[in-house]
C-alpha cells in the first residue's frame, strides 16, 4: 500500500498546503470547541427538546458556524444580541476561511491523484480556485449581512 508521500520541507506550494491542511485541522478543532462552548454559554443549555436533551443538530449549527441566521430555527430569544457581534463574526470568517481552504485543497489533492494530463489538471486547479473565491465571497457576504 502506498499513500501520498509528504512533500519536501521548503517554500513550495505543495508543502505550504500540506502544512496548512494539518494546522487548519488542529485550528478547526479549537474553533469548534469555542463554538460549542459559546453555544452552551449563549443559551443552548436552556434549549432542551422534551425537557431532557439539547438539540444536537442545532448545537452542530452553532458549533461549526456561529451565525445568527444559522441558529434562527431554534427559537432562542435574543439570538442577534448574543451572536451578531465582532467576536463571532471574526470566528465565522476564520472558520469559513480554514474550512473552505482545507476542503477545496483536499478536493484538489484527490483530483490530482487521479488526473495526470497537465492541461486538464491546470483547468481543474483554476476551477477550484474560482470556486474557493466564490465560496469565500458568498460566505463573507452572508456573515456580514446577518
Amino acid at each position: 500500500m502506498s499513500s501520498r508521500p509528504a512533500p519536501q520541507i521548503g517554500f513550495s506550494f505543495e508543502y505550504m498546503m500540506w502544512i496548512f491542511t494539518r494546522l487548519s485541522g488542529l485550528a478547526m478543532f479549537l474553533l469548534s470547541f469555542i463554538g460549542f462552548a459559546g453555544a452552551f454559554w449563549l443559551g443552548a443549555r436552556m434549549y432542551l427538546t422534551n425537557n431532557s436533551f439539547v438539540d444536537i443538530g442545532a448545537l452542530a449549527r452553532w458549533t461549526f458556524f456561529p451565525n445568527p441566521n444559522h441558529v434562527v430555527n431554534t427559537n432562542i430569544p435574543d439570538v442577534a444580541v448574543g451572536w451578531a457581534n465582532a467576536w463571532w463574526q471574526i470566528m465565522q470568517i476564520t472558520i469559513l476561511f480554514l474550512g473552505a481552504t482545507h476542503g477545496l485543497n483536499g478536493l484538489r489533492v484527490v483530483i490530482e491523484d487521479y488526473i495526470d494530463r497537465s492541461w486538464l489538471r491546470t483547468l481543474l486547479r483554476g476551477l477550484i480556485f474560482l470556486l474557493w473565491i466564490f465560496v469565500m465571497l458568498f460566505g463573507i457576504y452572508v456573515i456580514q449581512a446577518s
Partner: peptide, 15 residues
C-alpha cells in the same frame, strides 16, 4: 472529506 465539501458548498449556495 469530499462529501463534506459537497454538503457545505451546496448548503452555502442554498442558504
Amino acid at each position: 472529506g469530499l462529501a463534506m465539501v459537497l454538503f457545505v458548498g451546496m448548503h452555502i449556495v442554498a442558504s
